[in-house]
């Protein structure tokens, strides 16, 4: 034992509830924990640091919150005295307590890493070597850098991440942006939802457009066309996401998008039935077209071949080969 184990009941009023020096948990509201407390009471003591006039909470933020919700006046606690350890050593207690019984989510990892470095003076090298592997993170400087930025990232983005609306890689990308960009993008993202697969492409387009045009990455969100999509109440958040993505894609690849649109229009002008598919070569790299149809019998085959023959006699067909 490195410190005396003193356990006693402490009045919740004696605990400085505003002090979150040792907090790691991102979410302290836990309905199952509250239910458990209500049914069988507090099973494990919280860990408190004894101060001159008040106690500081080291471990047990969720337990204490649940007790307060149940209007409890006292909490069963183990007391640590500051003379027992330095503050980083005390934070280690919170760290290991959390690590011993659950997986930290990415924002909790970010919070712990940020505190180790910025509040408790643990060196980058020690964090990278000792702490990142404990959290299943690669022991690299860049990883630490990203997680530190994630901890200080915009609250709106953090909320979207917690809600599962942003992937970890999207969050990492957004966290690296200046605060003002994060705020604007968080606000822009409010009206849209992007599938995990689309997020990578979406943010990649934002990044490319910013670098290409020498603008901040949030600028596209201020464009009137984007705003009109974001404000279109007739669309679902996912539909808005797809439409904004399509617009960004068009800005990033203007000539390719125009060619695709021309092809679509000219194909439409041939007035072929939908069962006959005409497909251009990928990215129009060669002018070839591929024609496909399925025919269940000879009669249907003849019908579609006749449709194709009719289309082949129109000048619109030539246009299809001159899309670019």
């Amino acid at each position: 034992m490195l410190f005396d184990m003193i356990c006693k009941e402490i009045s919740i009023e004696e605990i400085d509830l505003t002090n979150e020096t040792f907090r790691i948990s991102e979410e302290i509201v836990s309905a199952p924990l509250r239910m458990s407390m209500r049914e069988v009471g507090q099973l494990n003591p919280v860990l408190l640091l004894e101060g001159k006039h008040t106690y500081r909470l080291i471990c047990g933020f969720r337990r204490l919150y649940a007790l307060r919700q149940l209007s409890a006046s006292h909490v069963f606690a183990r007391i640590v005295e500051e003379r027992d350890r330095d503050l980083s050593g005390i934070f280690n207690l919170a760290f290991w307590d959390n690590l011993s019984h659950r997986q930290l989510d990415p924002l909790e990892k970010a919070r712990a890493l940020y505190k180790l470095r910025n509040n408790f003076g643990v060196s980058n090298n020690v964090i990278i070597k000792n702490y990142l592997p404990l959290m299943d993170l690669s022991p690299h400087k860049q990883v630490l850098h990203i997680y530190n930025m994630m901890h200080t990232s915009n609250q709106g983005l953090r909320n979207r991440f917690k809600a599962g609306h942003l992937t970890l890689s999207s969050m990492e990308y957004l966290a690296a942006m200046p605060a003002s960009s994060q705020a604007s993008i968080a606000s822009g993202l409010e009206g849209i939802r992007l599938s995990a697969g689309l997020q990578k492409k979406f943010f990649s387009l934002l990044r490319d457009l910013a670098a290409k045009n020498g603008i901040e990455p949030e600028v596209p969100f201020k464009d009137p066309e984007v705003l009109s999509i974001l404000n279109d109440a007739g669309l679902s958040p996912f539909q808005r996401g797809e439409k904004v993505f399509a617009l960004l894609y068009r800005w990033r690849y203007p000539r390719l998008t125009q060619a695709e649109e021309r092809f679509f229009e000219r194909k439409k002008s041939l007035e072929l039935p939908g069962s006959i598919r005409i497909v251009p070569a990928p990215y129009f790299e060669v002018p070839d077209l591929r024609v496909e149809f399925n025919a269940p019998d000879a009669e249907r085959f003849r019908e579609m071949a006749a449709e194709l023959f009719e289309a082949s006699q129109t000048p619109e067909l030539d246009g299809l080969f001159k899309v670019i």
């Binding site: 490319d208 670098a211 290409k212 990033r252 690849y253 203007p254 990928p282 990215y283």
Partner: peptide, 8 residues
């Protein structure tokens, strides 16, 4: 890197 590239 920001040209209009396609896989060819």
């Amino acid at each position: 890197p920001y040209g209009e590239f396609i896989p060819g």
